[in-house]
Simulated assay, not measured.
Amino acid sequence: MTNENKLETAKLLILFLVEVAIELLLGFIFGRLENAGIVIPTYLHVFILDICLLIPVFAYTLKKGDAIVEAFEFKKIKVSTFFFTILLVIVAQPMVMLANVVSQFFVPNVMVQSVNQFATESVGLTLLATVISAPITEEIVCRGFFTNRLKKVFPFAVAAIISGIMFGIIHLNLNQFCYATVLGIIFAFVNRASGSIFTSIEMHMVFNGLNMCMLFLMNAAMEAAGMDFAEVAEQSRATSSTLPTTAIVLAILSIPSFFLVRLVIRAIAKREGNLETK
């Protein structure tokens, strides 16, 4: 690695630490406000955080003199790529679910434990924050900025893994770290296949949308039955003997899932004229 690349890597690492520090600082501030009796809704927390996370990466890009559209790969995708990207969300599910289940050997499912809070807030604004705002911001930061800059320093696979781990870390909990890292790596490869950040943004939105809708529906069903969804889920996780079996089944399903993901990504690359790089 050249000295120039080492310097760039160091700058990117520092910038990533700044992003994490922003999250921790905002979490601390909102926590103090809550202790003082001022509760910040989840959606407002997300909106404020998203704005703060975007500032450093755009500032760095502008300081470097890079064009925003090219640097972040804001490029149109074909209609067929749009639908193949939705298919990619489906075929990748076993690998993502496996990572989620493995994490639950150690910690609770964060989103399930948060569903009661989501349900007491504005459902529309919560969905806007988690399904629209957060995916756009996180993809701009993790793929548009970090992946695209790391791939100029490292082989693409290494850049994808590093940015995937970064994506996991910014969730600040082990449960989401595990499956977000898997998703982040897939997001990086599908973006390379399409040549556009819009594919990972779409995948991220679809993934979050499906999960949030499922959470709200299951929570409503549990409430109708007079049960607390988060409490039942945690009791099941902590005492159930089916978790290892679920992990084994998902591990088996993840093998064809891996190859199907590769096939769909290759199909996207072919349609976008980027097959030679795959």
Rank of each mutant, 00 (worst) to 15 (best):
T42C: 06
I48E: 03
H45R: 13
L62P: 00
F28S: 10
N35Q: 10
G37K: 08
G37I: 07
G37E: 10
L26Q: 05
L24S: 04
V46C: 06
C52F: 13
V57K: 01
K64D: 05
G27W: 02
L44M: 14
N35G: 15
E34Q: 09
L44I: 11
I38D: 05
L26T: 01
A59H: 06
Y60M: 06
F47I: 10
Y60F: 14
L54Y: 03
N35Y: 00
F47K: 09
V39T: 14
G31Q: 02
H45V: 03
F30T: 14
F47V: 11
I29Q: 00
V46A: 12
L25V: 13
I51S: 03
K63H: 14
I40G: 12
L54K: 01
I48V: 15
C52N: 12
R32E: 11
L33V: 09
V46F: 13
F47G: 06
L26V: 08
V39N: 14
I40S: 09
F28A: 09
F58V: 11
L62G: 09
V57S: 07
P41W: 08
D50C: 15
L54T: 04
L33F: 08
V46D: 07
G65W: 07
D50Q: 12
L25K: 04
F58K: 01
G31V: 08
L24Y: 05
L49I: 11
T61Y: 04
I29P: 00
L49D: 07
G31P: 12
E34P: 01
F30G: 03
L44F: 10
A36W: 02
N35M: 11
R32N: 11
I29S: 00
R32S: 07
L24Q: 10
F28E: 06
T61M: 14
A59D: 00
I48S: 12
L26N: 00
K63F: 15
P41L: 02
T42G: 13
G31N: 03
I48G: 03
G37N: 04
V57R: 04
T61A: 13
D50R: 07
E34L: 09
K63N: 10
I29L: 07
V39C: 08
G27S: 06
I40V: 15
L53C: 04
Y43T: 02
G65R: 08
T61K: 02
Y43F: 15
I29C: 01
L54A: 08
G31H: 07
N35C: 02
E34I: 00
G65T: 04
L49F: 09
T42V: 05
I38F: 09
Y60P: 00
V46K: 15
V57C: 03
P41C: 04
Y43V: 00
L26D: 01
I51V: 14
Y60S: 07
K64Y: 08
I48Y: 11
L54E: 01
E34W: 06
I29N: 00
G37D: 11
L49H: 10
L53G: 03
V39D: 12
T42E: 12
G31T: 05
P56N: 09
G37L: 03
F28N: 06
L62K: 05
T61I: 13
K63G: 08
D50H: 09
Y60H: 05
F47S: 12
I40K: 11
